[in-house]
Amino acid sequence: MSPEPQRKLSSSAGVAPAAAPSYRPATCTPPGAWRGAGYGQPFGATERTDTWWLMPLAQALGLGLLGLYATWAAFQGAHYEFGNYLSPFYSPLLKPAWWPISPAFLILWIPAGFRGTCYYYRKAYYRAFFADPSACAVGEPRKGYRGEVGFPWAIQNLHRYFMYFASILLVFLWWDVIRAFIFTDPDGSHYLAIGGGTLAILASNALLTMYSLSCHSLRHLVGGKLDCFSCAVAGGPRHGAWSRLSALNAHHMGYAWWSLFAVCFADFYVRMCSMGVFHDPMFVTFRHLFDYAPKISHFLL
């Protein structure tokens, strides 16, 4: 090249760098070469003056208690139905003869896996149970750390498959919501009503749905994976869906907690009714709705 400063346009204008990208390690420094004062600080060591331990403690208690309840309820294998109510832990109700334990375990691995690999719950339990870290800028108990590299934690990468299964489950769960509205008289006729259990099951499913819709993996699949919306097929609608899901995604933590509470409560409510502890109140009753089309309710049930 013959450099000539008076020329009109730069030689470098618009020319992309010639070198092809090479995949070297992110740094070429040997381990430990950049150690700061934070390395190897003992568990809990920090200059923080706030109550940093409160949040991980609350999370551990919340997750622990709800997790214990869910496990206990799943093991019961009884009192999961009350009339037209079905506990969400047992839906869809599968009872193959060869299955030795509670039917809950046939389906419960789906929500457990969905939540267990959830990007929000991972944060919560890594902090609360693994102290990895328990709070920001606080010393950790363990020396070795591999993050989500390698077995077993690389399994977190299959979050989207749990999301697929959970979406199928949601269809059954919405079926249960419809059933929770349809009550049966002693004479076998059906009527529409709203009872306490109806509301509990409806709330649980609505929140589960919001939790699923705000999933990070779903957001990625509907549009997040695109680099350029306006260059893609159906880019406009995908951008619309992506931005709406992104708005929900900002509240993923809230939906995670509320849906967990709600689903446990729905099971608890059905269980208590079934055990005769609660008396299920009826709020609204539409007695003759199915008189003209009894087949509808038969089909739904």
Binding site: A26, T29, P31, G36, Y39, D132, P133, E140, Y145, G147
Partner: peptide, 20 residues
């Protein structure tokens, strides 16, 4: 600075960190 992977575990030779 706050990322525990770099701060506590000193994996600067394997992890680029949130900024990057």
């Amino acid at each position: 600075d706050v990322c525990h992977v770099l701060r506590s575990h000193e994996l600067k030779h394997q992890f680029a960190g949130p900024r990057f």
